[in-house]
């Protein structure tokens, strides 16, 4: 590890280059994947059973399900941190365990683990954020540019916090530093495990804004979460894992229509939708398919009588 400061003193260039949009290229296809953890103490337990899933380039989807349903395990398969017992994962048609290097794959797919702030190790915030791009072997100028951009994207001021120790930041800020560390690698796909867990309202909003913005830039976003209200406010396609199997894969509207399905997976419909149902009964909105305050306001506006 280099010393504190790491010639980053010339870092504070206020003008930032906007990241150019990229053409999304990455298609991820999971085919009949099964996996069990092997333990010397107990019989192997199958955690994923025959999971098949196709994720198109630039798509944003959520992987939801109760604790122990296999969400995190599936996510760890994406970059070859775990190897399927049977079945395979193909990226752009190529089995990730055949031929091409997993290192390359790990640059293309950025994994953000639960509570990633616990993995910060740099003495300063910047040291942590530049670690990834520097490891890519990029020129120092580009490393700096990427780190600055990433910090700007997570709403952290380089001049203000760049030289501070991550230990002196709040939990929400540390989470964003960790996120910036992954963004600075500019992966084509981001897979995030409960990225908003434990954050307050403001912190959650910033993280969700980052995800929307990354999605707009063409990145594939896989959001692993147990928070059905959060994901249904953010995106359309929901994959429900239950007991290691794909229990549902489709549009959220279809998911919430099927009460039996929901109960079986232990999912309570999001409050926004329950409120929308009540508003519909009151004749104030026309549909119960509303998943956020913004959508509810929008519907209320549309159905308000023009004059008294």
């Amino acid at each position: 590890m280099t010393g504190k400061g790491v010639q980053l003193t010339t870092f504070f260039v206020p003008k930032l280059k906007v990241e150019r949009p990229r053409i999304p290229a990455m298609q991820i296809k999971i085919e009949n994947l099964s996996f069990s953890y092997k333990s010397p103490w107990s019989a192997p337990k199958e955690v994923l059973t025959n999971v098949s899933l196709t994720i198109a380039a630039g798509e944003m989807l959520a992987l939801v399900g109760p604790s122990g349903s296999g969400k995190t395990t599936l996510m760890q398969h994406l970059t070859g941190l775990l190897k399927p017992d049977t079945g395979r994962i193909c990226v752009d048609g190529q089995d990730i365990w055949q031929g091409s290097s997993l290192n390359t794959l790990r640059r293309r797919i950025g994994l953000v683990f639960q509570f990633p702030e616990t993995q910060l190790f740099g003495e300063t915030v910047l040291e942590d954020v530049v670690f990834g791009p520097r490891n890519l072997g990029l020129a120092e100028g580009e490393v700096r540019e990427r780190a600055e951009l990433a910090m700007q994207q997570v709403d952290l001021d380089v001049a203000e916090v760049g030289e501070r120790s991550p230990l002196h930041l709040s939990e929400g800020e540390r989470r964003r530093v960790a996120l910036a560390g992954v963004l600075s690698m500019q992966p084509e796909c981001l897979a995030l495990d409960e990225p908003t867990a434990g954050l307050d309202a403001a912190g959650t909003r910033i993280v969700l804004d980052v995800l929307r913005q990354q999605h707009r830039q063409g990145r594939t976003i896989i959001l692993v979460s147990h928070d059905i209200a959060l994901v249904s406010a953010l995106l359309h396609r929901i994959v429900v894992l239950n007991d290691g199997r794909v229990h549902f894969d489709g549009k959220k509207e279809d998911l919430f229509k099927d009460q039996a399905h929901l109960a079986a997976a232990g999912i309570v419909p999001p409050k926004a939708r329950r409120i929308a149902c009540a508003l519909k009964r009151m004749g104030l909105v026309a549909t119960e398919e509303l998943y956020s305050f913004a959508e509810i306001k929008n519907q209320l506006d549309r159905h308000r009588p023009i004059a008294e």
Binding site: D200, K271, I275, A278, L279, I296
Partner: peptide
């Protein structure tokens, strides 16, 4: 920067944008 339950946010919006005669009953949620 503290979240409030959605039914309170909706009621607040109903009060400011209409006569507020029709409001959600928070105890339902």
């Amino acid at each position: 920067g503290v979240d409030i339950p959605l039914e309170f946010a909706v009621n607040d919006y109903l009060k400011t944008t209409s006569d507020g005669r029709l409001l959600l009953n928070p105890s339902e949620f």
